[in-house]
Design a protein around this nucleic acid. Structure first.
Lengths: 256, 256
DNA sequence: GTGCCATGAG
DNA sequence: CTCATGGCAC
């Protein structure tokens, strides 16, 4: 089974590239972030023609997550379902077979110390709470998306520059570590230990050509899936030519 | 020699279609209107690769006219040169060989009776004055562009509806007739007398599929060129597929 | 840089 | 409907 996660930065602007991506990798499940459309504008028909079902938690101009699946998704749920109101569409879960998939778009956090920063840390706590209250670490779970956090030094080209930013500040790394500690395994790090593997490059500063990137998109597995993950990689090729998203997809091959 | 005029409604949005148009017809001269860019943003390089020189009278968000030529253009002049200030880029002339080409974008006119309406009538008077003071009816002149006036009933699908509009009001038809009276000949009407030949369809109202159009783009010739004009037509094909301009090009084949 | 919005133009 | 703008978000 091929599973992918990709922050497309507008599904409208990326529709052609998404179809090419699906054709190239034929993934069984794709978690998408920043689709930036309401459900009404989501391109269900085009994706159905490409052979995909779609579960969508949409929103007008910002955010919005989706899960594309070859098989029909079951138990689709939007948001954490923890009673708090969700003005932003950042979480979606769906089951395929016995496996639970969640597509997450963690808030960016604006500036360290700001209101948005607090919301980011708070949101990661809610995510941990969702795991605690709804998931079982010994069952099959794939939690994937744009976490807007680089976990370690080897995940950042220039750690000194980024340490003071919302993407690599110690506090947010700790908040992510607390989520992971529930019982998640970073699929990319099962076999790839080297530095320099990034999933995001700032559109400004022409960061991609200089590979001044960060690994902030992750595909986490619960323990039962770790031994079944044959391979995980970042699809840097997707960024070539045309108008790419600022995020590269993360892909994992998992025996199910 | 193939000569064309086309209101592209943004040269940025129409760049691909423009290149396809040039490849298809290989025109020697093309008058463009509503390029909507300053000279700094004009795609000189792409057009040079396609084999064209470009004379440009540009402007930031609105208006803007250009003349593309296979041979190098001479005596390029922006505006009427009548001493009045030109806050809007609507007129450009250039010579190719002995022939003078002018690309014009007559003001739309807003609402009949408005300030913009007066400016439209005034602008057409300035155009006539420019002809009187700078041109010779017995020399070779091609005056082409978006005149925002349909000259006759046969040039409008629904004359009754449009008679009260700025595009077909008797006053503006008279103002255009006064320009033509200087000594211009409507190339399309040399051989094509039938009704139903339009160059513009309102984006709103889905006017194109219903052919609810008007002929407001014209390619005028001075007398010495009339006998040399073998053919003139509207390129309706250009509107097919993708995101077309609301105007179709007018093309003439002229022996020079 | 690249996407969204609302607004203005046609 | 299809362009442009300036402003915001990331």
């Amino acid at each position: 089974m091929i599973v992918a996660t990709w922050n497309v930065n507008s599904i409208r602007a990326r529709e052609e590239r998404l179809l090419a991506f699906l054709a190239r990798h034929a993934p069984d499940v794709v978690c998408l972030q920043e689709i930036k459309v309401r459900q009404e504008e989501f391109p269900f028909e085009t994706l159905a023609e490409a052979g995909y079902h779609a579960a969508v938690n949409g929103q007008k101009a910002y955010n919005g997550v989706a899960i594309l699946t070859k098989d029909e998704p079951k138990e689709v749920k939007r948001g954490f379902g923890d009673g708090k109101e969700d003005s932003q569409a950042r979480f979606l879960q769906a089951h395929v077979g016995a496996t639970c998939f969640a597509s997450v778009y963690v808030p960016n956090g604006g500036e360290v110390g700001s209101e948005k920063w607090s919301m980011k840390l708070e949101w990661l706590k809610r995510l941990r709470k969702w795991l605690d209250e709804n998931m079982d670490p010994e069952k099959t779970l794939i939690l994937a998306g744009d976490f807007n956090v680089a976990p370690e030094e080897r995940d950042v080209e220039n750690p000194d520059q980024w340490e003071s930013s919302v993407l690599f500040h110690p506090d947010v790394r700790e908040a992510l570590a607390d989520v992971v500690e529930w019982g998640l395994f970073d699929s990319l790090r099962i076999r790839n230990k080297e530095a320099g593997l990034y999933t995001w490059w700032d559109y400004r500063r022409l960061a991609f050509p200089r590979n001044d990137g960060l690994r902030i998109d992750h595909l986490y597995l619960s323990r039962p899936l770790v031994g079944r993950c044959a391979e995980a990689w970042i699809d840097r090729e997707e960024r070539k030519g045309g108008r790419p998203s600022d995020h590269a997809p993360v892909i994992a091959a998992i025996d199910v």
